[in-house]
């Protein structure tokens, strides 16, 4: 699938991987809808994509806000057309510095699940039916190695991402044969604000640049038909200047 002419909705698109991916798919000719809580920041990115000849619209919304789901997806569809690719990139770590589960407030765990699991579920529920009827579409869940590895203090985030990974697989199983595909992507460690908040002492020179990761994710989107729906793909930073190695 080529991204040219496709309608792509990306959450968490005001900074980090979401911003880089919006720029990447906008540059590849997709009609891109950028969603983030910070309306001014996300509009600035959309404006820049338009300034570079792309088609982009921004919408300010919190993915965990139940009341926003239909308003945002309806508006996105009115602006860009029926959504072909939905990228669930927005996520929350919960309060930083990260804390042990015994020290995690229940409300913070709930919030992590609301943003990282229930939000993506709601948005997919609204958009994937139309994709199934049209016979095609792709839903990408941005995951993390914390979904697989039990890192101490990453409990709320890691458990929510593990749930998201399983959601990827179950969506794929239920909609097999409809043309709607699901893809989990673990982008690896990137030089983003979120990473800095979680691991302020990390050596930034060893972290992948979001733009390089975005290029790899866009490649995976364009080649999604080649892998099994529901697959989880880990992109890992490479020392090579070309960027990224891929392990499925």
């Amino acid at each position: 699938m080529t991204l040219r002419g496709r309608a792509v909705l990306i959450t968490g698109a005001s900074r980090g991987l979401g911003e880089a991916l919006a720029r990447e798919v906008g540059g590849r000719g997709a009609r891109v809808v950028l969603v983030a809580r910070d309306g001014a920041a996300v509009e600035a990115v959309a404006q820049d994509i338009r300034a570079h000849g792309g088609e982009a619209w921004s919408i300010a919304a919190d993915v965990a806000d139940k009341d926003a789901v239909h308003r945002v997806t309806g508006l996105a569809t009115a602006l860009a057309g029926p959504i072909d690719v939905l990228v669930h990139n927005a996520s929350t770590l919960g309060p930083v510095p990260l804390s042990l589960l015994l020290d995690t407030d229940c409300e913070d765990l709930e919030r992590a699940f609301a943003v990282n699991v229930v939000g993506p579920f709601r948005w997919t529920k609204v958009l994937a039916g139309s994709m199934a009827l049209r016979g095609g579409g792709l839903v990408v869940h941005v995951s993390s190695d914390a979904a697989v590895e039990a890192y101490p203090t990453w409990g709320a985030y890691g458990a929510s991402k593990a749930a998201l990974d399983h959601l990827t697989r179950i969506w794929a199983a239920e909609l097999e044969g409809t043309g709607v595909r699901f893809l989990g992507v673990d982008p690896g460690e990137m030089d983003t604000r979120m990473h800095a908040e979680a691991m302020p002492d990390a050596d930034r020179s060893k972290l992948a640049r979001p733009a390089d990761v975005a290029r790899a994710v866009a490649d995976r989107i364009e080649r999604a038909g080649e892998s099994q729906s529901g697959a989880r793909v880990a992109l890992s930073a490479s020392a090579e200047p070309s960027g990224l190695a891929v392990a499925s």
């Binding site: 789901v69 239909h70 009115a78 039916g129």
Partner: peptide, 27 residues
């Protein structure tokens, strides 16, 4: 609510009242 008036496969926003015969159709 807006979610009360959508079918399970709604796409392009074009209807001003719900195409309601499809309302009971589940996936």
């Amino acid at each position: 609510h807006l979610w009360d008036v959508q079918t399970a496969y709604a796409g392009e926003p074009l209807a001003v009242e719900m195409p309601s015969a499809g309302r009971p159709l589940s996936w």
